[in-house]
Amino acid sequence: MIENFKKRFQKDGIWVLFLLPALLIYLVFMAAPLLDSMRLSLYTGKGYTPTEFVGLQNYIDLFTNPVWRERFLGALKNTVIFFAIHMIVQNSLGLFFANLLSQDFKGRNFFRTIIFAPATLSVLVTGFLWTLILNPHWGAINQTLKAIGLDSWAKPWLGDENLALVTISLASVWQWVGMPTVLFLAGLLGISDEILEAARVDGASSWHIFWKIKFPLLKPVVGVVAILTFVDNFNAFDVIYAMAGAKGEPGYSTDLLATFFYRTGIAGEHPIGIPNMGMGAAIATITFVILMTGVLIWLYSSRKNEDLV
């Protein structure tokens, strides 16, 4: 048996050595913290020492204790809205632009470069920039609206509880629309010209070609875009922090799961400023479960689609 083991090590040992650095750093700084967060969510305690075991009390508090419940459900609802706006507006625009850019015309590389440009910038920078553009008194948007006589349209975009979340979501869509665009574009360019040419010869309209031929072939890309949008936006923090602060102003109307997590588990609520790490870990764990559920549904349905093909 020892002989056997030795032989195996001589054969496979080198691969283990090659894998070791990547595995160690991934285990210690990613996998273990993610898993240990679940354990921590069962504890409570002030500051950096959540040492008192409380079982599921943190979760029970989040769902039933009025102090936590309101904030938690509010953040969850806002996160769903934030995600839905990206899913619908950003991805439809992306599909539309990709379809235009997949045609052969002069300047298409120029447009492609420009549409993607905002996505290279830091979310924080674009978020701050938008707060200036949306400034109710001096910002370019309201100045322009007033200049063309639409005074009543000039709104306090980030100061109104009913408008702020939608406004911030659209600013974020502005930044990220290039992402689905390039992904869909890559998918569209992968469709063979012969199929499209054949359809054209048969007299199909471009509308028809898009929905009956291109879109069904794009389905795997649609799945990838949907899951990326889901994971990224259920985890969004920077844009809210930049445009509405860590408390999701005004009146928590833009508070997302990530800002709620940050305030609770890391920064600590004002004025005490002491983080409740156990509760933070519980929020992270719930976010984790939501993400995993979405990913598993996606994996399951994309596998089913493959079987059909």
Partner: peptide, 10 residues
């Protein structure tokens, strides 16, 4: 598929 941020507390 799993954002590392969720392990921030640890």
């Amino acid at each position: 598929m799993i954002p590392i941020r969720l392990g921030t507390i640890d």
